[in-house]
Amino acid sequence: MKGVLLVNLGSPDSPTPKDVKPYLDEFLMDERVIDVPLWLRNIIVRGIILQTRPKKSAEAYQKIWWDEGSPLIVISERFQHKVAEQLDIPVVLGMRYGSMSIKGALQELRDKGVDDVLLVPLYPHYAMSSYETVVVKTMEDQEAHFPDMRITTLPPFYKNKDYIKVLADKIADGLKDFEYDHILFSYHGIPERHIRKSDPTKFHCKINDQCCSTNSVAHNTCYRHQCFDTTKRVIQELGWSADKMSNSFQSRLPNDPWLKPYTDFELERFPNEGIKRLAVITPAFVSDCLETLEEIAMEGKDQFLEAGGETYKHIPCLNDDKPWVSVMANWVKDWETKEILPM
């Protein structure tokens, strides 16, 4: 029997330091997130970061927490239920980090009689700290606890025409009543070394525009290329000029080169260059979360306005919008009936 496992990032159980600390520990101790030797990761995470970060992160979560719970969890659950309504097979939800484990989700599928699973990492782009870690963890849990389960993985869908269309429509709808000078596509940031580590050729990726625009098998696992390609395809879908649109990367750690340009630097720079009315979209995420709701919609807005900007608009993620639900349900139906996955 076939079934679907949707996997998103995860969330602490509550916006308190007590619950945020174990969540951050699991997240930051992932070798695909902070990719240094275990002994050094222990020092960085448990000896330094977790001494102060849980309190700060809890305060950030408190700003965006809903009555129903974590926005990421609530939105993901709504999405799961709506996708399931369009299908005749079980659809369950797991999280890479936190109490809603992937193992628990696989057990839920097993209890429903499922032995053939479509794994859907809810990330449009390939990155070792997001897409890859979901796939690896799922395969580890499957091998250890459900060895007779077959798992097929949905590939990154950053350039799929149906995904691009719903994303472009979302942006167009969000800008319907907003006069803008510029649109910023702000993607989640990752260390530059992750790009090189993910390069199967070990020589193509140079972290410059030339390698991203030169065709290569490396693009299949190059987060930077895939982000830029998403922006280009959305602009083409909308038929808009690229002159008023640009890319940036948010959420970085200090003392380490991450993908550039940095979103916070761009927000400070724009007003000085005459960009006073800014719209921001965050296509690295399909569900609004701490990074989009607090870092971009709140902190980003304050930063832009303090730098001299006049109006600022954050366009929400696809979340549980009906068109996005239909796209996902159709992908599942193609896999279920024809063994075809989106490209």
Results as ranks from 00 to 15, higher is better:
residue 107 Q to W: 12
residue 33 V to N: 06
residue 136 V to T: 06
residue 24 L to Y: 06
residue 84 A to P: 02
residue 16 T to M: 10
residue 1 M to R: 00
residue 36 V to M: 13
residue 41 R to N: 06
residue 31 E to I: 09
residue 42 N to M: 14
residue 136 V to E: 01
residue 67 D to L: 15
residue 106 L to G: 04
residue 117 V to F: 05
residue 21 K to N: 07
residue 122 L to T: 04
residue 30 D to P: 10
residue 30 D to L: 15
residue 118 L to D: 01
residue 63 K to L: 14
residue 125 H to T: 14
residue 27 F to A: 07
residue 42 N to R: 13
residue 33 V to A: 05
residue 119 L to Y: 02
residue 129 S to M: 12
residue 84 A to I: 03
residue 17 P to L: 10
residue 74 V to R: 11
residue 99 S to D: 10
residue 80 Q to I: 12
residue 51 Q to T: 08
residue 8 N to V: 09
residue 42 N to Q: 15
residue 23 Y to L: 10
residue 139 M to T: 00
residue 96 R to C: 10
residue 52 T to W: 13
residue 26 E to G: 15
residue 115 D to I: 01
residue 128 M to C: 12
residue 132 E to W: 12
residue 61 Y to P: 04
residue 47 G to I: 05
residue 114 V to Q: 01
residue 85 E to F: 14
residue 94 G to R: 02
residue 64 I to Y: 04
residue 122 L to G: 06
residue 31 E to H: 12
residue 84 A to Q: 08
residue 135 V to S: 01
residue 40 L to A: 11
residue 101 S to A: 07
residue 72 L to E: 01
residue 44 I to R: 03
residue 78 R to T: 04
residue 123 Y to N: 06
residue 110 R to T: 07
residue 37 P to A: 03
residue 79 F to C: 06
residue 63 K to D: 12
residue 126 Y to G: 05
residue 97 Y to D: 07
residue 109 L to D: 02
residue 75 I to Q: 05
residue 124 P to L: 15
residue 116 D to E: 13
residue 64 I to H: 02
residue 133 T to Q: 03
residue 125 H to Q: 15
residue 134 V to G: 11
residue 133 T to E: 01
residue 42 N to H: 14
residue 46 R to L: 07
residue 9 L to C: 14
residue 112 K to W: 05
residue 140 E to C: 01
residue 37 P to R: 01
residue 121 P to M: 10
residue 11 S to Q: 13
residue 28 L to I: 08
residue 123 Y to Q: 08
residue 35 D to M: 09
residue 68 E to V: 10
residue 101 S to F: 07
residue 28 L to E: 10
residue 92 V to N: 01
